[in-house]
């Protein structure tokens, strides 16, 4: 449901309920987007030879994260 749906009512119940859902989904989507953009930038930078790629610690060194 969005504010454009016919059932939507402009009151606090709808604002809180749907607002928190969209907030959580927004945070998750932004997190994914950041990871994706950072990956693309890293790959692009490597292609141009601008930066030395940072070593990627393997999962076996998990405690170093």
């Amino acid at each position: 449901m969005t504010p454009l749906s016919f059932e939507w009512q402009w009151n606090i119940d709808y604002g809180i309920f749907m607002g928190f859902l969209y907030l959580a989904l927004g945070v998750v989507a932004c997190g994914l987007l950041v990871a994706l953009v950072k990956t693309l930038m890293h790959m692009h930078g490597e292609d141009k030879g601008e930066a030395e790629p940072a070593p990627i610690p393997s999962r076996s060194k998990y405690s170093e994260y």
Binding site: G31, V34, A35, T39, M43
Partner: peptide, 19 residues
């Protein structure tokens, strides 16, 4: 690509954990 994406995801894992 997968390796770097996984690494980047891991760096912001606290955000996902908090959500």
């Amino acid at each position: 690509e997968f390796r770097i994406f996984g690494h980047n995801l891991h760096h912001i894992m606290a955000v996902f954990a908090a959500t």
